[in-house]
Design a protein around this nucleic acid. Structure first.
Length: 399
RNA sequence: GGGGAGAUUCCCGAGUGGCCAAAGGGAACAGACUGUAAAUCUGUCGGCGUACGCCUUCGAAGGUUCGAAUCCUUCUCUCCCCA
């Protein structure tokens, strides 16, 4: 059964079409729908890739539907095995509750706390009896579980796969049932977990919820978005960083960013994507609109405007940024001329003298906006000196 | 428990006695150009020295050798196959 395999190829057109038609039916009921997103608080800091469903939840919220944000304090005890190539590190309930604080704080950058129902799945999962778990477990043919690509791969490679991991989907599915929701949103990889909710709801004679999933958002360079790749845009980024990182999105990824991260009205989004396909249109202009939209969502229109202005000034017009960090010279370095190479290393602004020399040799070291070409150049003591290393690392050395 | 493969500079990955600070790719950094911090092109990419050079590095510790990432011994860890 195709829909049970849980991989990114699942679902397919027919399922999506079915979900769309079920959603249309449900909307005809004319009441606010309960739309839920669950997340396990197993990561300390989040990026906009994690936030694609959150961003969509906000759209639902703005349309007047009841949005539920579920914190997986119990599912987090297992850790979602979806897409994992090995057993996950497990957290204690205390750790999870601690991380949940940061988590909700970040989520409320987008969602309206007043209008959001926040729940913890420990509320019901902790109360299930063994008999109830048996009943739930009986819903899932083992074949569905072991044919999921992630599990199948691990089994094929002879790697550890433990029973508790196979229960994850059951737990998430039960959440959907307990929350009596109409729609569950999630990443595309969550198909299996979302469908589990439908099976459980159907088992209990309920109308199954609609599964609404979103494709994976790639990092700004086209690889998987990950903090360690340095290609992520993080929820807690400053407006300037967020804007700048948006401008760094590869041109060909722009359409997916428009779809997944902005809250343009559908027609507007389509228009932007159409513009991108036109000849002679500078993608930069559209990228700026995406950046402004994104920063506005997280920081407000004013901050977005300011960030855009700063980008224009600093990057495009190559002017000085607003606040350049000042570095006061420690006593032992002050008072005498010192070679730039030594100074920069002493201040920990570079890992080695060779690195600074290289920068100078390549014409990327500037003092008071003048390129330094002599690797032995020194700085005279006293006063404030503006230093620029490379494209955008500015410092003021004082003392 | 038995058999096999492997651990290389940030990552992947070549390298089986000197030409190896170590191919190639990726990332990163710089410069050029541009339509942006995109794309493209060029360069750099262990440390110290202006420099012929010196020092440290190829899982760990020893050993063989004029000379080892490459050979031997032991150890640690990882993966695969069989039971």
């Amino acid at each position: 059964m195709n829909t049970a395999t849980g991989g990114e190829e699942t679902g397919g057109r027919s399922l999506r079409a079915q979900m769309a038609s079920e959603l249309r039916e449900r909307l005809k009921e004319g009441r606010p729908l309960r739309v839920y997103l669950g997340a396990d608080p197993t990561r300390p800091s989040l990026h906009i890739g994690h936030f694609v469903p959150v961003q969509k939840l906000r759209v639902w919220q703005e349309l007047g539907h009841q949005v539920v944000f579920l914190i997986g304090d119990y599912t987090g005890l297992i850790g979602d095995p979806t897409g994992q190539s090995s057993e996950r590190k497990r957290f204690t309930h205390e750790q999870l509750m601690e991380m949940a604080k940061d988590y909700t704080q970040q989520v409320f950058r987008l969602l309206d706390p007043e209008k959001t129902e926040v729940r913890f799945n420990g509320e019901w999962l902790s109360k299930l009896s063994f008999a109830q778990i048996i009943e739930l477990a009986a819903i899932f043919p083992l074949k569905w579980i072991v044919s999921r690509r992630d599990f199948a791969d691990r089994l094929a490679r002879g790697e550890s796969l433990r029973l508790h991991e196979t229960l994850y989907a059951l737990m998430q599915g039960y959440d959907a049932h307990a929350l009596e929701c109409d729609v569950q949103v999630g990443g595309y990889d969550q198909h299996f977990n979302l469908l589990a909710g439908r099976w459980i709801q159907e088992h209990f004679g309920r109308k199954p919820h609609i599964c609404w999933t979103y494709p994976l958002l790639m990092g700004t360079d086209g690889r998987k978005m990950s903090k360690s790749y340095g290609n992520s845009i993080d929820i807690l980024d400053t407006p300037e960083d967020m804007y700048g990182k948006c401008m760094r999105i590869s041109d060909d990824l722009l359409p997916s960013y428009i779809d997944l991260t902005t809250n343009f009205a559908p027609a507007e989004a389509e228009a932007l994507k159409a513009r991108l396909r036109e000849k002679g249109v500078n993608p930069m202009e559209i990228k700026k609109q995406v950046a402004t939209n994104l920063v506005t969502q997280y920081h407000g229109a004013e901050a977005a405007q300011a960030a855009g202005d700063q980008f224009q000034r600093v990057v495009q017009d190559k002017a000085l940024p607003d606040d350049i960090p000042e570095i006061a010279l420690p006593a032992e370095l002050a008072g005498a001329p010192i070679a730039w190479v030594d100074l920069i290393v002493a201040l920990n602004l570079a890992a080695s003298k060779g690195e600074v020399r290289r920068l100078i040799a390549q014409g990327g070291f500037y003092v008071e906006q003048e390129t330094i070409t002599d690797p032995a150049a020194t700085r005279a003591p006293g006063g404030t000196t503006l230093v620029r290393m490379g494209k955008r690392r500015y410092f003021k050395i004082v003392g």
